[in-house]
Design a protein around this nucleic acid. Sequence first.
DNA 1: GGGTGTCGATCGATCGATCGATAGACGACG
DNA 2: CGTCGTCTATCGATCGATCGATCGACACCC
Lengths: 205, 205
Amino acid sequence: MPVPPTASTAPAEERVREAALDLFAARGYHGTGIRQLAEHAGLSSASLYHYMGTKEDLLVAIMRTCLERLIADAEAVVTARADPEERLAELIRMHVRAHAERPRETRVVDGEVEVLGAAARAEVITLRDRYESIWQSVVEDVLTAIGAPAGEDARLARRALLEMCSGVARWYRPDGRSPLEDVADRYAVLGLRLVGVPHPSHPSH
Amino acid sequence: MPVPPTASTAPAEERVREAALDLFAARGYHGTGIRQLAEHAGLSSASLYHYMGTKEDLLVAIMRTCLERLIADAEAVVTARADPEERLAELIRMHVRAHAERPRETRVVDGEVEVLGAAARAEVITLRDRYESIWQSVVEDVLTAIGAPAGEDARLARRALLEMCSGVARWYRPDGRSPLEDVADRYAVLGLRLVGVPHPSHPSH
DNA sequence: GGGTGTCGATCGATCGATCGATAGACGACG
DNA sequence: CGTCGTCTATCGATCGATCGATCGACACCC
């Protein structure tokens, strides 16, 4: 529950962003007051508005940055790999890494969409759909490549994969027993087995 | 965002519970005001306090009920089945059913733990740990039964399984394309493959 | 007439947001 | 050089609204 204050050496604009990330992730958007935000960033609540629009604008900016980064990373993976199974494995590793290294961002993105007004929500959901559609086609390609039976449901598998990988943000700790790359590799194995790849014995990289 | 009001025929105490479930799930705990809660339940905000303690008490009661039910159902599954693979398959089906049929409860339980004070949070986390420990031992038994290599991580697999199954609450709609039992069965197949069961061809029931 | 429900009125606190004021940095002009 | 005007950054004070919670009063029922 207690969140240590943001380091006060960075420029104020970054401190505001960091403070919002810390507090929105820890207490939720509605659970975070403007004054807490200001105190955490080392400014007065009035000064806060020199760097942001409304509180909701701040939330949207965080979500947009995070989602655009995920999309760019996913597109880079698809560009870099041709083999369907390798693509999926690398997509899983990328997603797991992102959620483990930036749990605050992903927690805010995954958990605060419903507080947005209609316009902002539409924008964020469009970005999320773009990201998920990349996964969708990669999963479909894998199912085709392994000659999956007609009953296999790519949408179901995609949802199961994404939820399972996003969950990493809720439990991974950098000081835990296994290094992040191990977790990412293991998740790639679990994910490939999940979709039905018989022997996911690909090299890690 | 709009949430239709709770039917006004039920007794007031149930209406309060239902209203809290609706609004906490849709707008979050901090996003829901006492007056919205009262209006949704068809009472005045003062009358609300005839049926509940504090707003937080109401939240805790919802969480406790949901978690105790999950624990009881999980224990029933373990009692009814002896084969490790069948146990895990049935555990998955149960969890998926629960999250699809009661998305509001599970969304509140999964997403609002951090708003609780220390005492209430400790109680809820204890219940959650009880539930997860049941899964943990079932997953371990499956790994042993199939002679999994020593490198397999039961904790990792358990977390992946639980996150993937809980995600159903975020997308399942009863009017969707596949009936709930299909989804539950498919998830059981995906989950067994995930942990490494070679041919999860068990009958559905 | 003691419970059982229900309510309007209201409490102090906090909410998100805005105001006008102030202090300093920087360049332009004479 | 000095000294204006503008721009950026910051703040205390305060706005109206809403927050969670409580009070005393009223109505009904057994």
